[in-house]
Amino acid sequence: QDVITWRCPAHFPAASSSFKDSVQFVSALIKERTNGRFIIEPYAAGSLIPGPEVFNAVKRGMVPIGMTSSAYDMARVPILNVVAGLPLNFAAEWEGVYFHQWMGFEQLVKDDMLKNHGLLFFSDRIYTTELSLKKPVRSMDDFKGLKLRSSGIMQKYLTSIGAAATMIPGGDIYAGLASGMLDGAHWGAVQGSSSMKFYEINKYHLKPALNVAATDIWVINKNAFDKLPADIQEILTRTLEEHFWRRTNQYQYLEELELAKVQKEHDVTVLTIPPAEFSKMQAAAIKIWDEVAALSPDCAKAVEMIKEFNRSMGRLP
């Protein structure tokens, strides 16, 4: 029997739990479901292609499939600004899932990606971006003068509410926190911060999330996909669609587990911003949402969906 092998570069480091639980897991499942006829060979960040180039590499057909961050290609694909998560867009994971799968946002992105880039699109999962901090923060005012490590749109937002948000590279963050150059940083949520060892220094974890989003995404080159036998196409599509639900749920479980662990091992305190303050912070984010809405008709549509959802929750007037 013929074996088809696809190289699959990812933007995760080899040891990150997501490389195992998202990329290697899907790869193993597909191998099993195709009886070994279709092999997806995972490659960790940078080993074949640097993370920010995965999208381009898949688009030009250097590799047929890839897993990347939705933030990397926001400049070329406006809708990815929304995928990557607008600041304070939702208050919990399930809200982001509802937005993607019930309000039609996932399909909006799929259509856009196929039409403009010849790519099939799948969100890997919905998860949160949360701050880990050295100082307690309980209100919007507490952000004033706070020295935070951030990036992209979130950096813009945190600056707009008075934080001194700086973008220093991943490898320098730990030293920055340890020395007092930084008061806090976000790197995913609890699992991300924990893997980066932030809780060795940061004793506070802030909830709710700065955003809820499909930060990690799969892209598949449509031409390569079309060359697969029909049954393998079906298995690949179904597996990735199913993976979204299972992985989102599993990730939430792992978050709770890790949070309990860092609370026990590193004495971390969870701080929660009260709903009234959250609404205030959300209102401050609307200017940035509207900037993104102006990027394309699809973006405008998506931002309107987010507003509609938040109105239905009584958070926005």
């Binding site: 290609d73 948000a165 973008m167």
Partner: peptide
Amino acid sequence: YWEHSISA
């Protein structure tokens, strides 16, 4: 697409 950086 006259690429701009995704930074702030």
